[in-house]
Protein backbone atom coordinates (compact mmCIF):
# COMPACT_ATOMS: atom_id res chain seq x y z
CA UNK A 1 0.00 0.00 0.00
CA UNK A 2 2.80 2.41 0.94
CA UNK A 3 4.61 1.67 -2.32
CA UNK A 4 1.45 2.15 -4.34
CA UNK A 5 0.84 5.53 -2.79
CA UNK A 6 4.48 6.54 -3.20
CA UNK A 7 4.23 5.80 -6.92
CA UNK A 8 0.90 7.59 -7.21
CA UNK A 9 2.36 10.60 -5.45
CA UNK A 10 5.37 10.65 -7.76
CA UNK A 11 3.17 10.49 -10.86
CA UNK A 12 0.93 13.28 -9.60
CA UNK A 13 3.99 15.36 -8.87
CA UNK A 14 5.18 14.88 -12.42
CA UNK A 15 1.71 15.63 -13.81
CA UNK A 16 1.62 18.92 -11.97
CA UNK A 17 5.21 20.02 -12.40
CA UNK A 18 5.21 19.51 -16.14
CA UNK A 19 2.97 21.27 -18.59
CA UNK A 20 0.96 18.16 -19.49
CA UNK A 21 -1.76 18.38 -16.92
CA UNK A 22 -2.16 22.13 -17.23
CA UNK A 23 -2.53 21.89 -20.96
CA UNK A 24 -5.05 19.09 -20.59
CA UNK A 25 -7.03 20.84 -17.88
CA UNK A 26 -7.02 24.19 -19.65
CA UNK A 27 -7.99 22.74 -23.01
CA UNK A 28 -10.76 20.74 -21.42
CA UNK A 29 -12.07 23.66 -19.36
CA UNK A 30 -11.95 26.03 -22.34
CA UNK A 31 -13.78 23.70 -24.72
CA UNK A 32 -16.49 22.75 -22.26
CA UNK A 33 -16.91 26.37 -21.17
CA UNK A 34 -17.49 27.33 -24.78
CA UNK A 35 -20.26 24.74 -25.15
CA UNK A 36 -21.76 25.74 -21.84
CA UNK A 37 -22.02 29.36 -22.98
CA UNK A 38 -23.53 28.30 -26.30
CA UNK A 39 -26.08 26.03 -24.61
CA UNK A 40 -27.07 28.63 -22.04
CA UNK A 41 -27.42 31.18 -24.87
CA UNK A 42 -29.72 28.82 -26.76
CA UNK A 43 -31.74 28.21 -23.61
CA UNK A 44 -32.17 31.95 -23.02
CA UNK A 45 -33.12 32.57 -26.64
CA UNK A 46 -35.72 29.83 -26.56
CA UNK A 47 -37.19 31.08 -23.30
CA UNK A 48 -37.50 34.58 -24.72
CA UNK A 49 -39.12 33.18 -27.83
CA UNK A 50 -41.70 31.19 -25.85
CA UNK A 51 -42.40 34.22 -23.69
CA UNK A 52 -43.05 36.30 -26.79
CA UNK A 53 -45.39 33.60 -28.04
CA UNK A 54 -47.04 33.43 -24.60
CA UNK A 55 -46.51 29.68 -24.84
CA UNK A 56 -46.99 28.93 -21.17
CA UNK A 57 -46.99 25.17 -21.62
CA UNK A 58 -43.71 25.25 -23.49
CA UNK A 59 -42.17 27.49 -20.88
CA UNK A 60 -43.11 25.12 -18.14
CA UNK A 61 -41.35 22.31 -19.90
CA UNK A 62 -38.09 24.23 -20.10
CA UNK A 63 -35.56 23.03 -17.51
CA UNK A 64 -31.80 23.15 -17.09
CA UNK A 65 -31.38 19.41 -16.81
CA UNK A 66 -32.83 18.54 -20.18
CA UNK A 67 -32.01 21.67 -22.13
CA UNK A 68 -28.52 22.47 -20.87
CA UNK A 69 -26.96 19.71 -18.81
CA UNK A 70 -27.83 16.71 -20.93
CA UNK A 71 -26.44 18.19 -24.16
CA UNK A 72 -23.51 19.55 -22.16
CA UNK A 73 -22.74 16.04 -20.89
CA UNK A 74 -22.51 14.93 -24.47
CA UNK A 75 -19.91 17.60 -25.22
CA UNK A 76 -18.05 16.96 -22.01
CA UNK A 77 -17.65 13.24 -22.53
CA UNK A 78 -16.62 13.56 -26.17
CA UNK A 79 -13.75 15.91 -25.39
CA UNK A 80 -12.97 14.05 -22.21
CA UNK A 81 -12.51 10.81 -24.17
CA UNK A 82 -10.40 12.50 -26.81
CA UNK A 83 -8.01 13.86 -24.19
CA UNK A 84 -7.73 10.67 -22.13
CA UNK A 85 -5.05 8.87 -24.18
CA UNK A 86 -2.78 11.79 -23.35
CA UNK A 87 -3.32 11.24 -19.65
CA UNK A 88 -1.84 7.75 -19.72
CA UNK A 89 0.62 7.71 -22.63
CA UNK A 90 3.64 8.65 -20.54
CA UNK A 91 3.02 6.53 -17.48
CA UNK A 92 4.87 3.30 -18.23
CA UNK A 93 6.37 3.90 -21.69
CA UNK A 94 8.54 6.68 -20.33
CA UNK A 95 9.84 4.53 -17.46
CA UNK A 96 10.90 1.98 -20.02
CA UNK A 97 12.47 4.50 -22.37
CA UNK A 98 14.52 6.22 -19.67
CA UNK A 99 15.32 2.90 -17.93
CA UNK A 100 13.89 4.09 -14.62
CA UNK A 101 11.96 0.83 -14.79
CA UNK A 102 15.24 -0.79 -13.75
CA UNK A 103 15.12 1.23 -10.58
CA UNK A 104 11.52 0.29 -9.82
CA UNK A 105 12.18 -3.38 -10.52
CA UNK A 106 15.25 -3.57 -8.30
CA UNK A 107 13.64 -1.99 -5.25
CA UNK A 108 11.21 -4.04 -3.14
CA UNK A 109 8.20 -2.92 -5.17
CA UNK A 110 5.86 -5.44 -6.71
CA UNK A 111 4.64 -4.93 -10.29
CA UNK A 112 1.06 -4.74 -9.08
CA UNK A 113 2.01 -1.77 -6.90
CA UNK A 114 3.55 -0.02 -9.89
CA UNK A 115 0.39 -0.57 -11.94
CA UNK A 116 -2.01 0.50 -9.22
CA UNK A 117 0.04 3.52 -8.22
CA UNK A 118 0.05 4.81 -11.76
CA UNK A 119 -3.61 4.04 -12.21
CA UNK A 120 -4.52 5.93 -9.05
CA UNK A 121 -2.58 8.96 -10.27
CA UNK A 122 -4.29 8.94 -13.66
CA UNK A 123 -7.70 8.47 -12.01
CA UNK A 124 -7.02 11.46 -9.80
CA UNK A 125 -6.21 13.59 -12.82
CA UNK A 126 -9.40 12.64 -14.64
CA UNK A 127 -11.35 13.24 -11.46
CA UNK A 128 -9.94 16.78 -11.39
CA UNK A 129 -10.81 17.23 -15.08
CA UNK A 130 -14.43 16.31 -14.44
CA UNK A 131 -14.60 18.23 -11.18
CA UNK A 132 -13.73 21.42 -13.04
CA UNK A 133 -16.78 21.04 -15.24
CA UNK A 134 -18.98 20.83 -12.15
CA UNK A 135 -18.89 24.64 -12.09
CA UNK A 136 -21.39 24.66 -14.96
CA UNK A 137 -24.28 23.01 -13.07
CA UNK A 138 -23.23 25.07 -10.07
CA UNK A 139 -23.60 28.27 -12.08
CA UNK A 140 -27.06 27.15 -13.17
CA UNK A 141 -27.95 26.36 -9.58
CA UNK A 142 -26.84 29.74 -8.31
CA UNK A 143 -28.48 31.61 -11.18
CA UNK A 144 -31.71 29.61 -10.91
CA UNK A 145 -31.89 30.09 -7.17
CA UNK A 146 -31.43 33.85 -7.61
CA UNK A 147 -34.51 33.95 -9.83
CA UNK A 148 -36.56 32.30 -7.12
CA UNK A 149 -36.49 28.73 -8.38
CA UNK A 150 -36.04 26.53 -5.31
CA UNK A 151 -34.60 23.56 -7.19
CA UNK A 152 -33.39 24.64 -10.62
CA UNK A 153 -31.24 21.53 -10.97
CA UNK A 154 -31.90 17.88 -10.29
CA UNK A 155 -28.61 17.15 -8.59
CA UNK A 156 -29.18 13.41 -8.24
CA UNK A 157 -29.30 13.14 -12.02
CA UNK A 158 -26.28 15.39 -12.46
CA UNK A 159 -24.15 13.43 -9.99
CA UNK A 160 -25.25 10.15 -11.51
CA UNK A 161 -24.11 11.47 -14.88
CA UNK A 162 -20.76 12.43 -13.42
CA UNK A 163 -20.36 9.00 -11.88
CA UNK A 164 -21.00 7.49 -15.31
CA UNK A 165 -18.48 9.77 -16.99
CA UNK A 166 -15.88 9.03 -14.33
CA UNK A 167 -16.36 5.28 -14.77
CA UNK A 168 -16.17 5.69 -18.53
CA UNK A 169 -12.92 7.64 -18.13
CA UNK A 170 -11.59 5.13 -15.61
CA UNK A 171 -12.23 2.33 -18.11
CA UNK A 172 -10.49 4.21 -20.91
CA UNK A 173 -7.39 5.01 -18.86
CA UNK A 174 -7.11 1.39 -17.74
CA UNK A 175 -6.59 0.52 -21.40
CA UNK A 176 -4.46 3.61 -21.93
CA UNK A 177 -2.19 2.35 -19.17
CA UNK A 178 -2.00 -1.02 -20.89
CA UNK A 179 -1.07 0.67 -24.18
CA UNK A 180 1.65 2.54 -22.33
CA UNK A 181 3.01 -0.71 -20.90
CA UNK A 182 3.57 -2.48 -24.21
CA UNK A 183 5.91 0.09 -25.73
CA UNK A 184 8.65 2.49 -24.76
CA UNK A 185 7.30 5.18 -27.06
CA UNK A 186 4.70 7.66 -25.87
CA UNK A 187 3.56 8.22 -29.43
CA UNK A 188 2.89 4.54 -29.97
CA UNK A 189 1.09 4.43 -26.62
CA UNK A 190 -1.17 7.33 -27.51
CA UNK A 191 -1.96 5.91 -30.95
CA UNK A 192 -2.75 2.47 -29.58
CA UNK A 193 -5.07 3.96 -26.95
CA UNK A 194 -6.82 6.03 -29.58
CA UNK A 195 -7.30 2.99 -31.76
CA UNK A 196 -8.77 0.93 -28.92
CA UNK A 197 -10.87 3.85 -27.75
CA UNK A 198 -12.33 4.49 -31.17
CA UNK A 199 -12.99 0.82 -31.73
CA UNK A 200 -15.03 0.54 -28.53
CA UNK A 201 -16.65 3.89 -29.11
CA UNK A 202 -17.84 3.06 -32.59
CA UNK A 203 -18.60 -0.60 -32.07
CA UNK A 204 -22.14 0.29 -31.01
CA UNK A 205 -22.73 1.75 -34.47
CA UNK A 206 -21.90 -1.54 -36.12
CA UNK A 207 -25.04 -2.95 -34.58
CA UNK A 208 -27.40 -0.36 -36.06
CA UNK A 209 -29.86 -1.95 -38.40
CA UNK A 210 -28.84 -5.37 -37.14
CA UNK A 211 -31.04 -7.50 -35.01
CA UNK A 212 -30.78 -10.08 -32.29
CA UNK A 213 -27.42 -11.28 -31.11
CA UNK A 214 -25.20 -8.94 -33.15
CA UNK A 215 -27.15 -5.88 -32.10
CA UNK A 216 -27.09 -6.95 -28.45
CA UNK A 217 -23.42 -7.77 -28.51
CA UNK A 218 -22.28 -4.55 -30.15
CA UNK A 219 -24.53 -2.45 -27.97
CA UNK A 220 -23.24 -4.17 -24.86
CA UNK A 221 -19.60 -3.81 -25.81
CA UNK A 222 -19.91 -0.15 -26.66
CA UNK A 223 -18.24 2.17 -24.19
CA UNK A 224 -20.82 4.86 -24.76
CA UNK A 225 -24.06 2.89 -24.64
CA UNK A 226 -23.43 2.15 -21.00
CA UNK A 227 -23.20 5.84 -20.21
CA UNK A 228 -26.69 6.66 -21.35
CA UNK A 229 -28.64 5.52 -18.29
CA UNK A 230 -26.22 7.32 -15.99
CA UNK A 231 -26.83 10.62 -17.74
CA UNK A 232 -30.56 10.19 -17.27
CA UNK A 233 -30.08 9.53 -13.58
CA UNK A 234 -30.59 5.78 -13.71
CA UNK A 235 -28.03 3.53 -12.05
CA UNK A 236 -28.01 0.10 -13.65
CA UNK A 237 -26.03 -2.84 -12.29
CA UNK A 238 -25.20 -4.02 -15.80
CA UNK A 239 -23.57 -0.67 -16.62
CA UNK A 240 -21.55 -0.72 -13.42
CA UNK A 241 -20.47 -4.29 -14.07
CA UNK A 242 -19.43 -3.37 -17.60
CA UNK A 243 -17.17 -0.49 -16.57
CA UNK A 244 -15.70 -2.33 -13.59
CA UNK A 245 -14.93 -5.34 -15.80
CA UNK A 246 -13.21 -3.20 -18.41
CA UNK A 247 -11.12 -1.54 -15.69
CA UNK A 248 -10.18 -4.91 -14.19
CA UNK A 249 -9.25 -6.33 -17.59
CA UNK A 250 -7.13 -3.31 -18.48
CA UNK A 251 -5.26 -3.46 -15.18
CA UNK A 252 -4.79 -7.21 -15.43
CA UNK A 253 -3.26 -6.90 -18.90
CA UNK A 254 -1.04 -4.04 -17.77
CA UNK A 255 0.19 -6.12 -14.86
CA UNK A 256 1.01 -8.98 -17.19
CA UNK A 257 2.92 -6.65 -19.50
CA UNK A 258 4.95 -5.16 -16.64
CA UNK A 259 5.79 -8.63 -15.31
CA UNK A 260 6.75 -9.86 -18.76
CA UNK A 261 9.09 -6.91 -19.22
CA UNK A 262 11.89 -8.77 -17.46
CA UNK A 263 11.51 -12.01 -19.34
CA UNK A 264 12.40 -10.87 -22.83
Amino acid sequence: MGNTLAIAKKELRIYFTTATSYVLLTAFAAITAYFFVVLVGAYAAQTTQFMGMQAQQMLERMNFNDQVILPLFFNIYVFFLILLPMVTMRLIAEEKRTKTMQLLMTTPVRPIEIVLGKYIAASTLIFVMLAITMVYPLILQIYGASTGDAAPIDWATVLCGYLGMFLLGAAVIAFGLFASSVTDSQIVAVLVSFAVLILFWMIGWAGYGQQGFVADLTANLSLINHLESFTRGILKVSDLVYYVSVIALGLFLTHRAVEAERWN
Binding site: G2, N3, A6, I7, K9, K10, R13, I14, T17, T18, T98, K99, T100, Q102, L103, L104, T106, T107, P108, V109
Partner: peptide
Protein backbone atom coordinates in the same frame (compact mmCIF):
# COMPACT_ATOMS: atom_id res chain seq x y z
CA UNK B 1 22.06 -0.51 -7.30
CA UNK B 2 23.34 2.10 -9.68
CA UNK B 3 22.37 0.95 -13.18
CA UNK B 4 24.55 1.81 -16.15
CA UNK B 5 21.98 4.37 -17.29
CA UNK B 6 21.32 6.54 -14.27
CA UNK B 7 17.62 6.16 -13.45
CA UNK B 8 16.52 9.72 -12.77
CA UNK B 9 13.21 11.47 -13.36
CA UNK B 10 14.15 14.77 -15.05
CA UNK B 11 10.98 16.46 -13.77
CA UNK B 12 11.72 15.82 -10.11
CA UNK B 13 14.10 17.84 -7.96
CA UNK B 14 16.95 16.04 -6.23
CA UNK B 15 15.08 15.95 -2.91
CA UNK B 16 11.81 14.88 -4.49
CA UNK B 17 13.66 12.13 -6.30
CA UNK B 18 15.38 10.85 -3.18
CA UNK B 19 12.12 11.09 -1.25
CA UNK B 20 10.44 8.89 -3.83
CA UNK B 21 13.21 6.30 -3.89
CA UNK B 22 13.35 6.25 -0.07
CA UNK B 23 9.61 5.50 -0.02
CA UNK B 24 9.76 2.61 -2.45
CA UNK B 25 12.80 1.22 -0.68
CA UNK B 26 10.71 1.04 2.46
Amino acid sequence: YLPEIVPIYPDLTVTEYLDFVASIKG
